[in-house]
Simulated scan of single mutants.
Amino acid sequence: MKKGILILLAMMLAVGLLSGCSSPSTPETPEEQSEEVGDAVLSIEDDFGNTINFGNPPEKIISLAPSNTEILFAVGAGDKVVGVTSYDDYPEEVLDIEKIGDFNGINLERIIELEPDLVINYGDGVTEENERLLEAGIQIAGFEPESLQEVYDTIIKVGKITGHEDEAKELVEEMTSQEAELAEKIEGLDKKTVFYEIWHEPLMAAGPGSFVDELINRAGGENVAADADGEYPQFDLEQLIERNPQVYITANDLPEKTADSIKERPGYSEIDAIKNDRVYLLDGNIMSRPGPRIIDALKLIIEAIHPEINN
């Protein structure tokens, strides 16, 4: 599992767009396989080359990331979820599901006691824990989407393996339609340079290859960290000042972090986003979960970059 995204999810309380010439992503359905429940195998391949097979949809599922939990509920498989992390809080029904750990560690013994048919990881999981689960006869699927298209693909796969592929396809169609509507809203608007703060001590940015970077681009922004080293790199203050973003975005992940506290940081007064009061703190849960609400995240970034569309 990538260290950067773990920091992003934990620190943003989750575990915690389109430019004028862009076009919305087209959902890609995984290769068609037999789906006749009970007679043939429900089969998918996860993001790490593992094949997951079921003769019937799994009756008990444990989700080890809020984004995967939201996908399960969105496609209609929420009633099969018997365990989630302590950071899961959406939809409201999740609050009543047993908590079996967080990104600092899971209660492996309790997971095995619950006898799930399927455990869904964010990323490829921990090798030793995976081995224990497999020895107990529990199948594991791992997903790590870092783009809108990969989120769509993950939704389709989760829908398929849980016996809800039709619902998953409907959801993806709705999301791509919303994506297209947002693209139309910002068509022809001037691009703005943007910095997205993942963390502040040390300063970390949303870099190339991250889903936040893609959302910035699709929102009609130009990510000043687009050439940084990795998805969630450290970013020097001097470099931030030099690149002088017009818009500064981060998550409302800490009570003490406010627009005013950001403006008061040493050196920040030289940045245009600070001078022009263009600092935005967005919903940390929505911004950190590559799942069904990623279109909401796109909308939030669009409104930060182009507030004029709401006038």
Results as ranks from 00 to 15, higher is better:
residue 196 Y to C: 05
residue 142 G to I: 04
residue 146 E to K: 12
residue 212 V to H: 06
residue 164 H to V: 07
residue 208 P to D: 08
residue 142 G to V: 00
residue 154 T to M: 11
residue 180 A to D: 15
residue 195 F to Q: 07
residue 193 T to D: 08
residue 167 E to S: 14
residue 158 V to G: 01
residue 199 W to R: 03
residue 161 I to K: 00
residue 143 F to W: 05
residue 183 A to M: 13
residue 210 S to H: 06
residue 189 L to S: 08
residue 194 V to S: 05
residue 202 P to A: 13
residue 203 L to I: 13
residue 191 K to S: 07
residue 157 K to V: 08
residue 174 E to P: 04
residue 205 A to P: 04
residue 132 R to K: 15
residue 142 G to T: 00
residue 147 S to W: 05
residue 140 I to L: 13
residue 160 K to I: 14
residue 161 I to G: 02
residue 198 I to F: 04
residue 203 L to D: 07
residue 140 I to C: 04
residue 172 V to I: 11
residue 161 I to Y: 02
residue 182 L to N: 10
residue 182 L to G: 03
residue 195 F to C: 08
residue 146 E to R: 10
residue 184 E to P: 09
residue 194 V to H: 01
residue 136 A to H: 01
residue 165 E to V: 12
residue 187 E to P: 07
residue 201 E to Y: 10
residue 187 E to M: 11
residue 212 V to A: 10
residue 188 G to N: 05
residue 178 Q to F: 01
residue 161 I to H: 01
residue 162 T to Q: 01
residue 207 G to N: 07
residue 192 K to G: 08
residue 139 Q to Y: 02
residue 199 W to P: 06
residue 152 Y to L: 15
residue 167 E to H: 12
residue 164 H to I: 09
residue 206 A to F: 10
residue 201 E to F: 08
residue 207 G to K: 00
residue 198 I to T: 01
residue 190 D to Q: 14
residue 174 E to A: 12
residue 156 I to D: 04
residue 196 Y to L: 02
residue 209 G to A: 04
residue 164 H to G: 02
residue 149 Q to A: 12
residue 137 G to F: 03
residue 142 G to N: 03
residue 192 K to F: 12
residue 158 V to K: 00
residue 158 V to F: 05
residue 183 A to V: 13
residue 142 G to L: 02
residue 203 L to Y: 13
residue 150 E to G: 03
residue 140 I to A: 04
residue 186 I to V: 15
residue 138 I to Y: 00
residue 199 W to L: 09
residue 207 G to F: 08
residue 132 R to L: 15
residue 176 T to F: 09
residue 145 P to Y: 03
residue 172 V to P: 05
residue 134 L to V: 14
residue 197 E to I: 09
residue 147 S to T: 11
residue 189 L to F: 09
residue 169 K to I: 09
residue 133 L to G: 06
residue 208 P to Q: 06
residue 178 Q to L: 12
residue 165 E to F: 13
residue 139 Q to F: 03
residue 158 V to I: 15
residue 143 F to Q: 00
residue 189 L to M: 13
residue 201 E to P: 02
residue 197 E to H: 05
residue 151 V to K: 00
residue 179 E to V: 12
residue 204 M to W: 09
residue 207 G to A: 09
residue 178 Q to I: 04
residue 173 E to I: 06
residue 170 E to S: 14
residue 156 I to M: 11
residue 164 H to E: 13
residue 203 L to S: 08
residue 149 Q to T: 11
residue 211 F to R: 00
residue 210 S to G: 05
residue 170 E to W: 04
residue 169 K to H: 06
residue 167 E to F: 11
residue 187 E to D: 14
residue 150 E to W: 07
residue 170 E to D: 15
residue 181 E to H: 13
residue 179 E to S: 10
residue 134 L to G: 11
residue 186 I to K: 00
residue 165 E to R: 06
residue 162 T to M: 03
residue 173 E to A: 14
residue 131 E to G: 03
residue 193 T to N: 02
residue 205 A to M: 09
residue 133 L to W: 01
residue 196 Y to H: 12
residue 179 E to P: 09
residue 194 V to E: 00
